[in-house]
């Protein structure tokens, strides 16, 4: 079913909207949740929450791209759930690694309390991504948006894991330089 038809079902308040969403984008959402949570049951619960969030938000929202819209909700819910679990010291998630790698983009002198304008940060990150080649950008986002493991990325981009690791290292370094140049950090 086309996205526009699924969205029509949401607007018509038909529960079939959830079934069709699950059929078309269930695997995509589970993949994102599982990368972050590393647990089937939690991932499924997280994706169910995504559907509920979509049900409650469409209408009034009318997503331009349903897949990405659902992916963003899943990612946000999964990371919140991950934070809860990390407080409970449950391990196994790649999110911990992803967050610690991103931590490396922030100067050590910058404190947690140092606030920033999120809009400026998003714009700077987009500027940085725009300057990357398509492949490098996609690899960066597979790691830091989708939280995919280095092994999964290596498999999907037909590269060695060490090459992916090195490429990500270089990109984090460049991102930090870019954020410094833009006086974000």
């Amino acid at each position: 079913m086309k996205d526009i038809d699924i969205i029509k079902l949401y607007f018509a308040r038909s529960e079939k909207a959830i079934d069709e969403t699950d059929k078309k984008y269930g695997a995509y959402c589970i993949c994102i949740a599982k990368n972050i949570l590393f647990n089937n049951q939690d991932s499924e619960e997280c994706v169910n929450d995504t559907y509920l969030r979509a049900w409650n938000s469409i209408p009034p929202k009318e997503p331009h791209n349903l897949r990405t819209y659902l992916g963003k909700i899943t990612r946000g819910l999964a990371i919140n759930r991950y934070k809860l679990y990390s407080a409970e010291k449950r391990g196994g998630s790649s999110a911990e690694l992803v967050l610690s790698e991103l931590e490396g983009c922030i100067p050590s002198g910058m404190s947690v309390e140092d606030t920033l304008d999120e809009k400026l940060l998003i714009k700077a990150v987009e500027d940085f991504l725009r300057r990357q080649s398509t492949e490098k950008r996609n690899i960066f986002l597979r790691r830091y948006w989708y939280c995919s493991s280095v092994s999964d990325i290596a498999r999907d981009f037909s590269m060695s894991e060490s090459k992916v690791t090195s490429l990500l290292y270089r990109q984090r370094h460049k991102l930090r330089e870019h954020l410094e140049r833009e006086e974000i950090i």
């Binding site: 995509y28 993949c31 791209n65 897949r67 990405t68 992916g71 963003k72 987009e126 991504l129 398509t134 950008r137 996609n138 690899i139 960066f140 986002l141 597979r142 948006w145 989708y146 995919s148 999964d152 999907d156």
Partner: peptide
């Protein structure tokens, strides 16, 4: 960007 990078 998110769409482009989605796992295939």
């Amino acid at each position: 960007y998110i769409e482009d990078a989605a796992p295939k």
